[in-house]
């Protein structure tokens, strides 16, 4: 049974997966920094200002659980690899279309030198007006799968080493007061033959943790993932469904008493969904999952969209949710208690 956390949220809490488009001026400041024309302090101030701006944008759109938009992160694996000793970068590789990431290579024993995202969390907590904020951390399996391994004798050994590091980071976040951490594991189902040990390794990050832990898995084989819903020690699965036109919803029958973070807007399409489309999708998922166990989010991080489209998608998402909330309000259902 999931334990209640003494925090009240509106029914169908709305959240984001994590990333959000960087403001144009921030991109400019980063370019200036790279060219040596502004100093580190000015860059950090720009990041802080950008977080203030995008948190406000999320809250204005009606998001109940905002993130800091991952303003300080160029990329989800790269950011952690830059802060864990033992990685090296050879250059970018393409991920899809004309989108690249700086794929790291593990060239030495990995060492957790100091906290990675605590400062991010502390700043987000300070600027958000919401009772709960979300902190995202890339999971050990995905960091390993999206890196070249030149050092460890096996991928399994590498994942376990990373899991220890991520676990330390989550424990630090808990100590700092974080209430909701989402571990991003988009690669988790990529190698079905590795799932058994991968699930065990990913569970290592949850050891001794007493806050809400979600896991985000996207663009993946959910048939495979759903077989491990009960084995993964996370209370919430944030999954992408709009991109797949809400096919595969049947896998949610295997959720047990866990929650779904239901992806209702497609982050790889610039078409802005209508509130009615969002509401319709929620009605569909409510046929399978109890409404108390549904959170609403975009499919994935919004960062690759133009900022105005990302904002419009969040607004539409919240308007769609509000249609259903109104229907539920008439039935006397308005709040949930957050569970860990």
């Amino acid at each position: 049974m999931l334990k209640e956390m003494n925090i009240e949220l509106p029914i169908l809490p709305t959240t984001v997966i994590g990333s959000y488009p960087r403001p144009k001026w921030l991109r400019h400041m980063i370019r200036l920094y790279k060219a040596g024309r502004i100093d580190e302090k000015t860059l950090q101030e720009s990041f802080d200002d950008a977080v203030i701006a995008v948190v406000k944008e999320q809250e204005d759109a009606g998001i109940d659980i905002p993130s800091d938009g991952e303003m300080r992160r160029d990329e989800m694996v790269e950011y952690f690899a830059q802060r864990i000793k033992g990685f090296r970068f050879y250059g970018p590789v393409r991920v899809w279309g004309n989108n690249f990431f700086n794929k790291p290579a593990v060239v030495d024993k990995l060492v957790y030198e100091k906290p990675i995202v605590i400062d991010e969390y502390m700043f987000l907590r300070k600027v958000s007006r919401r009772p709960v904020v979300k902190v995202t951390i890339t999971g050990p399996y995905t960091i390993a799968d999206w890196s070249f391994n030149e050092y460890y004798s096996s991928k399994q050994e590498l994942v376990y080493e990373l899991a220890k590091i991520i676990n330390r980071e989550i424990l630090e976040l808990e100590k700092a007061g974080a209430k909701f951490v989402q571990v991003d594991e988009p690669a988790l189902t990529t190698h079905p033959e590795e799932m058994e040990w991968a699930v065990e390794a990913v569970n290592e990050v949850t050891k001794g943790v007493n806050i809400k832990l979600g896991i985000h898995v996207c663009y993946s084989n959910y048939e495979i993932l759903s077989k491990y819903f009960d084995k993964l020690n996370f209370s919430q699965f944030a999954l992408e469904f709009a991109n797949r036109s809400f096919r595969d919803l049947h896998i949610l029958k295997r959720l047990g008493d866990k929650e779904i973070g239901f992806g209702v807007v497609d982050v790889h399409s610039r078409r802005i969904e209508t509130p009615e489309e969002v509401a319709q999708a929620i009605r569909k998922v409510m046929e399978i999952v109890d409404v108390e166990r549904i959170y609403i989010n975009p499919d994935c991080g919004l960062k690759l969209l133009p900022r105005e489209i990302a904002k419009a998608k969040m607004e539409v998402m919240v308007r769609g949710v509000n249609i259903i909330r109104e229907e539920l309000r008439r039935k006397g259902v308005e709040k949930i208690i957050m569970r860990r």
């Binding site: 991920v95 990529t190 663009y219 991109n243």
Partner: peptide, 13 residues
């Protein structure tokens, strides 16, 4: 259609 993973890679089509 939408993006789909290209086999077991962090590459999508």
């Amino acid at each position: 259609n939408g993006l789909k993973r290209f086999y077991d890679n962090n590459f999508f089509f």
